[in-house]
Nucleic acid binder design. Structure first.
Lengths: 245, 245, 245, 245
DNA sequence: CATGAATGAGTCTTCATTCAT
DNA sequence: CATGAATGAAGACTCATTCAT
């Protein structure tokens, strides 16, 4: 008899939470297919019979775990209202959160992709997750376009899909395949590429020289002499991502 | 008892090839974990006993299939020597091949990623695959930088990782998650974003206005009035990808 | 810890009765083996723990349910003292009750048979149940024989086993296998067969022509010329079944 | 992979047969629900994995066993063309076969009834089995009616259902509940009751006194003096059962 | 080389029963 | 008395792999 969380006593709630936590760890370490129900139970310190008190199957547990993770990713990626006013800095802040969100859950997201290949509902969850990020990106770009700070000819959604994908994909390559880079460098680089790609025109006075790759940690990216003035002032686009939620 | 292809009679070679082909189809349709040795045998029209004459395990078959696919991707992505001289057009040509290569093998690549999570040798194969594309991209960028056509401040490798990831990721989102876009639009868009991100300065006379998103099929991207002349002529970077192999 | 009904508070008595009722329904609907303790508890609206306050096992509950049903069957099959004096009519009345008793409990009786195959005590209960009906039938036949109304050469017990079995079996076929027949027709037919089988000679004036089967609706069953008059007046045999209890 | 018998090698055929035989014994001894797949495998001397090479589940094995048994019952109950010409004797012969057929398979038939309660296909098999016997009985009765030897007013089918049920049910009570009787007595008794119930009028010279119950072993049913001539010549009813198949 | 029967380790899942609260 | 969480024995079923023919 599978017990819904609303009906549980505190003891039950604890056990259920332990199973979810154990499951999350197991999925992250071993991958979806490799996780055995008994592994999860052993981690959680309960008998396998108990597992079925709370979840009907491994899939059901994964659904729960995935839901939790997706929720966390939504929450973690919101750029607070106290975001910097400088567009470029806001893009940078958003990218940092974006990168971290995907990086810290990269294994589970991959699992979700696996599961999505088979199970329609997981596919739905995955689409929903991506959609949130895509919408934020598109919305940010649209605002910059309205303000005349970004190329008005770009399709906001498609651009967001592509540039967001760049960040997401880098998170994966970085974390899972061990591409060498420190976080600051990576974020600076992603931000530069992003800003340029959308034709960001600075509205502020902060110059970001086109010819410099601010990859070095703390690199202030000094403007090289040859930088075209019009391009040296990136402004925010996706920086406003978080504000749309 | 496992027979390598070198020692095979022609009958054996045929059987082996049939198993590989059947395995490829099965992996693509069902996913790595879901494929049963018997499925493959049934597709290939041989008995399960026969499978073990040629492969020691499902993993071994997958290794073979993956190797084949990776080889095809290498081959398919080479921009021929007859590539257009216009840098922008060359980037575009490379992106088209790049997109197609990943798109047409997206399921198997994902499988490879799954397998890589567990098996070190698959991880190696995957790294190798990515490395080829990364090197091509980095090499292309380096040349453009040397020619003064791209921002010399960008780290070639990291840039290639990121922008290449953008293409690869879009292939996946496009194919697997059903993001709507036609190929021409997608390639045009990817190329525009890529060219701008590297600060491509056209050396040619072909103007590509920064303010236009050449997303429409066949969009010649007419230059809007306000486009800065200096920015309207993108040149190739990754267009040279294939030449580096 | 199992609480017998004598020691129960009224609350306990109610809970116990609810479990028995729920069990009866469950056994009838699902069959012995398919019934889960939890099913019963859910029906009765109590938690599974509570079940074991009253019954030590599913078998124990079934024992209780079976006992109840057997008791009801005993009670329901008693032909009241107001039974008609006409032997044929009394057989008919008895057959009606007999048919109904077995029909309305057919599933539980079958369950009892299942259980009897394994459990000796259920076997005893089943034997007891049949014995009651057999004794009534045998007793009735013996009386008719003594009155010279039935063939004195028939072994009363064996005859009762066989003819009683005919009724019981028909109840099962009728109910469980959907043999088409309306109750009146069935009872009339069973009675005719029964009466003739025992060579019932009517002591009354009610003639029932041997050649007519009053079964088919409208079947007037015209008496064939050769029908011996002596056989046209069936008298009661099993009609006195109920009187023996 | 479940192998159909047509495709089997002789070794496979032997294994399959061994499993069916083992299953039959197990079902007879333990009852459907109590049989474990491993029990059957142990009896057949194969590993449990092998079981699933031939049958998809316990149910499937039972289906096979039940089919075999039903086939045997059909075959065993056919009254050969060398049946006696005397109607009474033919009924007797048919009843003997009938009783033996049901008696020797009583446990499996009960199992089939259990299974029929749940599984529609088993219900079908059971109906088919009963239908064969019912048709034979009805056909036999119809012929007797046409010959003027049996009460023409009786509905053949319903009569056959009821009297056939008498035999079937007795087989069960006799075998499973240990009702005491030797086979000859039982058959003689069943035949007497059957013959009388249908108002069998002898066309032959063999007198079967209505007043005698030939229950005694070897009872040749000596014709009592008082037997009406018209009744002394029993004719066949169910005796012709086997001829209709 | 090909076949396919046989094997059994490995998992999932059910459910009767116990027991602390 | 009632509750419901926890337990673990028991069984079904899968499938990679071996091997005799």
């Amino acid at each position: 008899m599978i017990v819904k969380s609303e009906v549980l006593t505190s003891r039950g709630r604890r056990t259920r939470a332990a199973l979810i936590q154990a499951g999350r760890e197991a999925f992250e370490e071993q991958g979806f297919e490799a996780v055995r129900v008994d592994d999860v139970c052993a981690r959680a310190g309960v008998s396998h019979g108990t597992f079925y008190t709370y979840f009907g199957s491994r899939e059901e547990l994964f659904r729960e775990v995935a839901g939790t993770v997706v929720g966390e990713m939504f929450a973690a990626s919101v750029v607070g209202p106290a975001a910097p006013g400088d567009p470029y800095a806001r893009i940078e802040a958003a990218n940092l959160l974006y990168l971290r969100a995907w990086a810290s859950n990269s294994r589970l997201v991959r699992m979700l992709e696996q599961a999505a290949a088979t199970d329609e509902s997981f596919r739905g969850l995955l689409l929903e997750l991506r959609e949130v990020f895509v919408r934020r990106g598109a919305e940010g770009l649209r605002r910059l376009q309205e303000q005349g700070l970004a190329d008005p000819g770009l399709d906001p959604r498609l651009t967001a899909v592509m540039l967001g994908g760049m960040v997401e994909h880098f998170a994966r390559v970085w974390l899972d395949l061990g591409e060498q880079a420190d976080e600051r460098t990576a974020v600076a680089m992603l931000t530069t590429l992003w800003a340029r790609a959308i034709g960001l025109t600075s509205a502020s006075t902060t110059p970001v020289p086109i010819t410099s790759a601010p990859t070095a940690p703390g690199s202030a990216a000094p403007a090289p002499a040859g930088a075209a003035p019009a391009e040296t002032s990136p402004a925010a686009s996706a920086s406003t991502q978080g504000e749309g939620t």
